[in-house]
Each structure stands twice: as C-alpha cells, then as structure tokens.
C-alpha cells in the first residue's frame, strides 16, 4: 500500500495537471503545471534519481514555466477569456481519457504479478551518467546540442521577423 508521502505527491502531480488544464485563469494553469512537474521531480527523488530530479526542476520550473508565464503575459488577457469548452467535447475527452486509463489499468493489473515490487539496489551516480553521456552516448549528445541550438535559433528568428514587420 502506498504511504502518505506517496499519496500526497500523487495528489500534487495529478492535481497540478488537472489545474493546468482546467483552471479558468491561465496563469493558474501555468502555476499548476509547474506544480505538477515539480511533483514528477519529487517522484524522481523517490526513485533514487536525484540528479534527474534536480535537472527536471531546473529546466521545467526554472526555464519552461518562466517562458510560459512570460508568453501568457505577452498575449492579451481577453484572448484567454474567449476560451470556451464545449460540454460535449469535454464528455468525449473524459471518456477517452477514461478509456486510456482503464486499458492501462488492465495492462498493469495483468502484468503486476510479473513485475518486481521491490526495487533492485541502485548504484547509479550522476558521475556514471556523465560518463555514459560523454562516452558511448556522445553522438546523441551532439545531436541534442544541435537540436537545442536549432530550436533556440528558430525561436529567435520567429521573434525577430515579427519585430521587423512591426
């Protein structure tokens, strides 16, 4: 049985996700998203991956959330207020999500007997992750660096073109 900490983290994560999507004010949504991602980071801590967890916080809360809030502020307030959700669409969405959840539940129930319930002892440190990244996964790292710089360039270009038109 899951303990209190786990349940609380689950509540924060899933609740944050729901707030992110359903809050009336989109800034609350952004904060909710940040909370949800923070909760996921807490799960990473729980899974003995502190490095990934801190990385997740740094990137998502430190960068992505700031970007999102910034974007929200660049777009006029009335635009967000026009947001309408049709009740039929919502029903369809809930049903589909439920279908996914149910099927995943079945899958998990079916395989739970074969899955280990106790984690194997972990010896992975961030040093080893660093070694792995810089040796055998170095091509991936380089490609990632390219993708990142390309996306930054793309973002800057988009913004810049706009400024010229103004």
């Amino acid at each position: 049985m899951a303990d209190i900490v786990f349940l609380a983290m689950m509540a924060v994560t899933v609740g944050g996700a729901i707030v992110a999507l359903e809050s009336r004010e989109i800034v609350y949504g952004a904060v909710g998203l940040a909370g949800s991602l923070f909760g996921v980071a807490a799960f990473f801590f729980l899974l003995d991956a502190p490095y990934v967890a801190v990385f997740q916080i740094t990137v998502y809360v430190g960068a992505v959330a700031v970007l999102i809030i910034f974007t929200v502020m660049l777009v006029r307030h009335e635009t967000w207020m026009k947001e309408v959700t049709y009740s039929l669409g919502r029903l369809v969405g809930i049903l589909t999500a439920a279908a996914i959840a149910v099927s995943l539940t079945f899958a998990w129930a079916a395989s739970s007997s074969q899955l280990p319930s106790v984690p194997v002892p972990s010896t992975v440190t961030f040093l080893q992750i660093g070694q792995l990244i810089s040796t055998s996964l170095s091509p991936a790292l380089e490609v990632l660096a390219l993708v990142l710089s390309a996306s930054v360039l793309a973002a800057i270009t988009l913004a810049k073109v706009e400024r010229e038109e103004d």
Binding site: A97, A99, S103, F106
Partner: peptide, 10 residues
Amino acid sequence: FALGLALLIL
C-alpha cells in the same frame, strides 16, 4: 489516436 491506443492495449 487515444481510442486506437486503448483498443490496441486491450
């Protein structure tokens, strides 16, 4: 996509 995914899992 989601319906297909659910059906596929089932």
